[in-house]
């Protein structure tokens, strides 16, 4: 187990480093002169020179990369070109919204998907099963942003129950929560389509095993066997997909925040693209990619906790 942990941690750190190299290269080397891509073609030579000095572009590439990484590790991502404040401040302001959205989306996804998946498996081959399978097939094909638009059409435009977008700020908790309901549902419905399928097939696999039949033969109720014996053993593939989905969910927040005009990190990325604010885009892309890599790492650690067989093997 110790060896597995060690190897996995090393590969996690190496992947993060490789990702940072890719992000840095795309944002700094690909454009040729980042100062020119920030200021545009009609910039004066003096302005370009000043910006190059400010961004440290006169330094060699390697020392720029090392300085960026050293700063990033300490939470220093440089100064935003458009807001003229440290990028870390911008991130800190918007992070709570994005994190709340991602976590609430994940929680709703898991509850919905596990309930639907287990229900489908328990009713294998019957109408309930087909219904869940049909909905999940459809859910996989529906883009989250279109689902969001449909939800807004129904619940904001037609019924007027919920706001169509925007965020009042955390100082009004009730209104804040209300404005996160539709974005959360939009995120969760699409994500749970995939997860419900995995839950169903994983539960079906376990239900075929001998000890499940034994448990039933011993007189345990269907419900008890389902929740106490089937689900815990069906969890491994579910955890894998949840981990992968968390990554998809976090990038999904980028889209959803733009649909609902929520001032989180996803909105910030798009404002920064429009403002050609390369340092901010670079920091945010690195942050999102790091979340994706970290999610995969945590999934591997969770295996250890869930499947005791892995511990004894190594």
């Amino acid at each position: 187990m110790g060896y597995f942990l060690f190897r996995r941690t090393i590969s996690f750190v190496l992947t993060l480093l490789a990702v940072s190299v890719v992000v840095f290269a795309v944002m700094n080397i690909l454009p040729g002169d980042p100062a020119l891509s920030i200021l545009g073609l009609d910039a004066t030579e003096d302005a370009l020179a000043a910006l190059r000095e400010e961004l440290g572009l006169n330094e060699p590439v390697l020392s720029r990369y090392l300085a960026w990484i050293a700063g990033a590790v300490q939470g220093d991502f440089g100064i935003s070109q458009s807001f003229r404040v440290p990028v870390s401040e911008l991130i800190a302001e918007r992070l709570p919204l994005t994190v709340s959205l991602a976590i609430s989306g994940m929680v709703v996804t898991v509850i919905l998907a596990v309930a639907l998946g287990v229900a489908a498996a328990a009713n294998h081959g019957r109408a309930g099963d087909w219904g869940v399978m049909f909905l999940s097939q459809l859910g996989i094909a529906v883009p989250a942003f279109w689902l969001s638009i449909l939800l807004v059409l129904l619940f904001a435009v037609k019924l007027r129950w919920l706001p169509p977008g925007g965020f009042p700020g955390w100082s009004e908790p009730a209104a804040a929560v209300r404005s996160l309901i539709l974005p959360t549902v939009a995120l969760a419905l699409v994500q749970s389509a995939v997860l419900a399928r995995v839950t169903r097939s994983s539960a079906l696999e376990v239900m075929r095993l001998d000890y499940i039949r034994t448990a039933r033969a011993m007189g345990f109720s269907r419900r008890r066997v389902l929740w106490r014996h089937v689900l815990p053993n069906a969890l491994i593939p579910i955890v894998t997909i949840v981990g992968l989905q968390f990554a998809a969910l976090v990038t999904g927040t980028i889209v959803i925040e733009n649909v609902f005009y929520l001032p989180g990190l996803g909105r910030l990325i798009f404002q920064s693209i429009a403002n050609r604010d390369l340092p901010t885009v670079q920091a945010l892309v690195m942050l999102f990619a790091a979340i994706v890599v970290t999610a995969n790492f945590i999934v591997d650690l969770l295996y250890l906790a869930i499947d005791p067989r892995l511990k004894t093997r190594s």
Binding site: V19, P31, I254
Partner: peptide
């Protein structure tokens, strides 16, 4: 290839759009 999986299309498009314009 593993590193490639860390970049969803959206993040890649965001980087390229920031550099070259959408």
């Amino acid at each position: 290839a593993d590193i490639g999986f860390a970049f969803p299309a959206l993040l890649l498009a965001i980087m390229l759009a920031a550099v070259f314009g959408p």
